[in-house]
């Protein structure tokens, strides 16, 4: 499992590299985030949540059944909008807010 970084959307702020629990990320020579060790990713999504530009998305490795969809999250106050981009480009959203976070 790993992440995909949209270099065009990355501003080079370095937040993802600062907090990645595996020290897997760094800024490349152009000052954009890159994952140096994609196979070492735990898929904790810390970088996905930390990126203010939505430049980092999670995907599932094919050997685990991944079909090419990606996951990003946008924060609006207490609410989290989890965006799933399906292989054809369609976007599916699950909203998580204090009122509905804990049915389970």
């Amino acid at each position: 499992m790993s992440i995909r970084i949209d270099a065009g959307a990355c501003t080079g702020c370095g937040r993802c590299a600062e907090i990645c629990p595996g020290a897997l990320l760094r800024l490349d020579e152009a000052g954009r985030a890159e994952c140096r060790y994609p196979g070492d990713c735990w898929s904790c999504a810390a970088c996905v949540k930390a990126c203010g530009r939505g430049a980092i998305a999670l995907y599932r490795a094919p050997e685990l059944g991944g079909l090419g969809a990606t996951l990003r999250v946008k924060k609006r106050g207490e609410a989290l909008a989890w965006e799933f981009t399906l292989p054809g480009g369609a976007v599916y959203v699950i909203n998580s807010q204090p009122g509905n976070a804990g049915e389970y």
Partner: peptide, 21 residues
């Protein structure tokens, strides 16, 4: 939603399975 709190890849898996291309 619940799994997004601890294991977002599981939810990604369910969404992928529920859309199947």
């Amino acid at each position: 939603r619940s799994y997004l709190n601890m294991s977002p890849v599981q939810t990604l898996q369910w969404v992928e399975e529920a859309s199947a291309f």
